[in-house]
Amino acid sequence: MAGEDTTECATAPLDRLRALCLDLPEVVERPSHGEPTWFIGGKKTFVMFADRHHDDRVAFWCAAAPGAQEHLTAADPEHYFRPPYVGHRGWLGVYLDVPVDWAEIGELVSEAYRAVAPARLLRQLDAEPSQSG
């Protein structure tokens, strides 16, 4: 992936993912199923961390636009997968134990937020100056 960043330590993927999620309006973090999970308005899940929770991989699961899961998992199975439990709803799994492009991860997090957030928060997000991840 272009712009790959392979220099992070073992805890950096969670820290970086957390920063991307918490930078969005009205996002809170709390554990769900034993993993850090991010909610919009404290109610709607849009990103879930997966630290070897269902296999031996470090990843996250996120809401995705219709068709995104199928497209990305077919095009790049080294980085993307269909996660258990939520995959049937179109959610996307993203491996974090391979070199990743954090700008792309930021886009995926933003798209996940947009897939779940109410219109009021989308208007707020669109009114804010552009942020880079």
Rank of each mutant, 00 (worst) to 15 (best):
M1C: 12
A2R: 13
E4Y: 02
T6L: 07
T6R: 08
T6H: 06
T6P: 00
E8I: 08
C9G: 13
T11F: 08
T11Q: 13
T11D: 11
L14K: 12
R16P: 15
A19H: 13
C21Y: 03
R30D: 02
P31S: 04
H33Q: 12
P36R: 04
P36D: 02
W38M: 01
F39A: 01
I40L: 01
V47A: 04
V47L: 00
M48R: 15
R52S: 12
D55R: 11
D56G: 09
R57V: 06
A59T: 11
A59Y: 07
F60K: 12
F60M: 07
F60E: 04
W61P: 05
C62H: 03
C62M: 06
A64I: 05
A68L: 15
E70D: 12
H71Y: 08
T73H: 09
A74G: 03
A74K: 10
A75Q: 13
D76W: 09
F81A: 15
R82V: 15
P84T: 00
P84M: 03
G87D: 14
G87T: 13
H88L: 07
R89D: 13
L92K: 12
G93R: 13
G93L: 08
V94H: 08
L96P: 11
D97S: 02
D97K: 03
P99D: 14
P99H: 10
P99M: 13
A103N: 12
G106C: 10
L108D: 03
A112I: 01
A112T: 00
Y113I: 02
A115L: 03
A115W: 02
A115N: 09
V116Y: 03
V116E: 01
A117I: 04
L121D: 06
L122A: 01
R123F: 00
L125N: 06
D126T: 04
D126P: 06
A127Q: 08
A127W: 01
E128M: 14
E128D: 13
P129W: 06
S130C: 01
S132T: 14
S132A: 11
